[in-house]
Design a protein around this nucleic acid. Structure first.
Lengths: 154, 154
DNA sequence: TATTGTTATACTCTATAACTATA
DNA sequence: TATAGTTATAGAGTATAACAATA
């Protein structure tokens, strides 16, 4: 009976042991570090995310981008304004429907995305340092599955 | 030579494939969902985090809590104000150093933490649904290691 | 003089609502 | 009238700076 109690207690995850809590705290921590380093490129994480969406060809109209990124359309406007100001993307009116702006990556935008990716990979190396290569791989796969299962771009 | 190129290309993770980017996006997504559900308890995730810190005995003075939670001391004041108002914790002046407030969990605070934990575990079940039990376990271990390695409470 | 907690204030990120141009 | 994008405004979450009490 004591064993039963002990193992029952051990089964019960404390709040801080749940994936929900840990993904939240860890996500914030890593995102903050990523944001700091991205600053040298004059980008915020969401700018980099938008560049990645365009590069992957997942969307071109601002409304589609907003849906994929799960942010408000008005926020896409300010992200695109900033990137357009840097020469990282162009807004091209769709001749067939002149309400639509097609966002297209420029060479500069492609280079910025590549640099942001280098930064993210360097951060990965530091963050994942304590894991074995196998663990890192399983983690990577699990995160991708979670992303897809939860409606984020894979 | 082609093989070399192919494998080199396959080695290169796109931005959205990095752990840094995915932990950030996934963390935000899960944290938002957790926050929504926690609202029935009139708590925000940081309130739950503070309860967990007290429950684990990791800190009692507000300054120590701030350090552990990596938030500004002034923010701990408002978190503690809210929790004290709900009867979830008490502020007790340290007689040995009357500048210090020892934050102590009440029964109500313990119950709230337990309820928050139930919510987090339910969310885990949904979020981890697509993973095999083994993957979920490895993910849990990896996340704990990452948390510890990056200075968060284990 | 240094430290703990508090208050006052301000900043960042992002959403909602109102508006314009086009359909 | 409905939709894509934009502008104006507002709110949540959190930090910084100034301050009070105590050491």
């Amino acid at each position: 009976m004591d064993e039963g109690i002990v193992s029952a207690v051990n089964d019960v995850k404390r709040l801080t042991d749940t994936a929900a809590f840990r993904l939240g705290t860890l996500g914030t921590l890593i995102a903050d570090r990523f944001a700091e380093r991205l600053a040298v490129l004059e980008l915020k994480p969401k700018h980099a995310g938008l560049l990645a969406v365009l590069d992957a060809g997942l969307a071109s109209s601002q409304l589609d981008v907003a849906k994929i990124m799960r942010v408000a359309p008005s926020f896409v406007v300010s992200l695109a304004d900033h990137l357009e100001g840097m020469g990282a993307l162009r807004r091209v009116r769709d001749p067939a429907d002149r309400r639509r702006q097609a966002l297209t990556l420029t060479d500069k935008g492609g280079k910025l995305l590549a640099e942001a990716t280098v930064i993210a990979r360097a951060l990965d190396a530091e963050v994942l340092e304590g894991l074995t290569p196998q663990e890192a791989e399983v983690l990577g796969r699990a995160l991708r599955r979670l992303a897809v299962a939860n409606g984020l771009p894979g």
